[in-house]
């Protein structure tokens, strides 16, 4: 479009037509964007501002909010031990995801992405949990985690092995890790898929060249595959962190954030104190805090990872 109009301009002597043309283009662009923009403003931007407004009220959700308390909700939230606990839990989930879940996905992607026999089958198996709904996953894992060795799969195995059964979802020291295991099972297929796509983009010549130079497969992985995957890793890390901050369904289905807040995440905290306890202003304030954390993380992360990608230069 751009180059086209430029050549036409060189033919046309009139000076004003270029500007009209450009203005026309802009108008068309604007008109095409308009429907999406309107929807975006109504369903994304407006609710955010509305939430900010509600978050300054002590409001039970029935009738109009009248009791404005300014930043009172925010002060209360940041002061609340349960909220601090939920932030800590989210941080633990993020760290575990980055340290365990993503490396596992990279390693598996390398295995099933290359020349493993029956790799199509493995790819399907690993991706299957991601397709399953979160509620189904939660209920299924609750059954697996059942403390009764005669009914729970994990405790059944432990008892068969002569070990002590574990109260997976009832022990306050274990529950968060039990939930994390389910999260990993559920989501690592998604990251695996991301890495598989990334691997497809790496030209085989580079690896072949390295092999000719005598690089071992481990060297080739660390010095060629990983650096060339960097842009995929960037995306995957960001998805993983944001997903962890917003995690709600699985946790709520399996533990309701319990026992006694041991598996509380920020999202379950928002639900418990906003909806269950009918404090909608307070809940809105929690949502705004989560929103701010997500935005700050995204901006910082993009600043920190600005180094261009090796392959695309982006």
């Amino acid at each position: 479009m751009q180059s086209n109009s430029a050549t036409q301009n060189s033919v046309l002597p009139k000076k004003g037509s270029r500007n009209t043309r450009l203005a026309n283009d802009r108008l068309v662009v604007f008109l095409f964007l308009l429907p999406a923009l309107i929807l975006f403003l109504i369903f994304v931007v407006y609710p955010i501002f509305r939430s900010v407004y509600y978050s300054t009220f002590d409001w039970k959700g029935l009738g109009q909010p009248v009791h404005n308390i300014g930043l009172g909700n925010y002060v209360k939230i940041i002061d609340d031990e349960v909220f601090q606990k939920s932030v800590k839990n989210v941080v633990i989930i993020i760290v575990l995801s980055l340290v365990l879940q993503l490396p596992a996905a990279i390693i598996l992607a390398n295995m099933v992405g290359r020349n493993l026999p029956g790799r199509a089958l493995f790819r399907t198996i690993f991706f299957l949990p991601y397709v399953l709904s979160e509620v189904n996953t939660g209920i299924m894992w609750m059954l697996l985690y059942n403390p009764d060795p005669e009914r729970g799969f994990f405790n059944g195995i432990l008892v068969q092995l002569g070990l002590h059964p574990v109260n997976w979802l009832a022990d306050m020291n274990v529950v968060l890790f039990a939930v994390f295991l389910t999260l990993t099972w559920k989501y690592f297929g998604f990251h695996l898929l991301l890495y598989l796509t990334g691997l497809q983009n790496i030209p085989t010549e580079i690896e072949e060249a390295a092999r000719m130079d005598g690089a071992t497969s481990i060297q080739s992985f660390f010095f060629i595959t990983l650096p060339l995957l960097s842009s995929t890793i960037k995306t995957s890390v960001q998805m993983s962190v944001l997903g962890s901050i917003q995690q709600f369904i699985l946790v709520w289905v399996m533990t309701r954030g319990g026992p006694v807040n041991a598996s509380e995440t920020m999202a379950t905290y928002m639900y418990r104190f906003g909806l269950v306890r009918f404090q909608f202003g307070y809940g809105a304030a929690v949502a705004i805090i989560m929103f701010i954390i997500c935005v700050i993380f995204s901006l910082l992360y993009q600043q920190l990872t600005r180094k261009p990608d090796y392959l695309t230069g982006l």
């Binding site: 609750m142 985690y145 059942n146 403390p147 009764d148 009914r151 059964p165 109260n167 997976w168 979802l169 009832a170 022990d171 306050m172 529950v175 533990t255 319990g258 026992p259």
Partner: peptide, 21 residues
């Protein structure tokens, strides 16, 4: 109380009792 009562749902509690446990 039964093992794992802190994490048991209402259905689970009735399963434990209903199964004679």
């Amino acid at each position: 109380f039964q093992e794992g009562f802190l994490g048991a749902t209402h259905d689970e509690m009735n399963a434990t009792f209903g199964n004679g446990k």
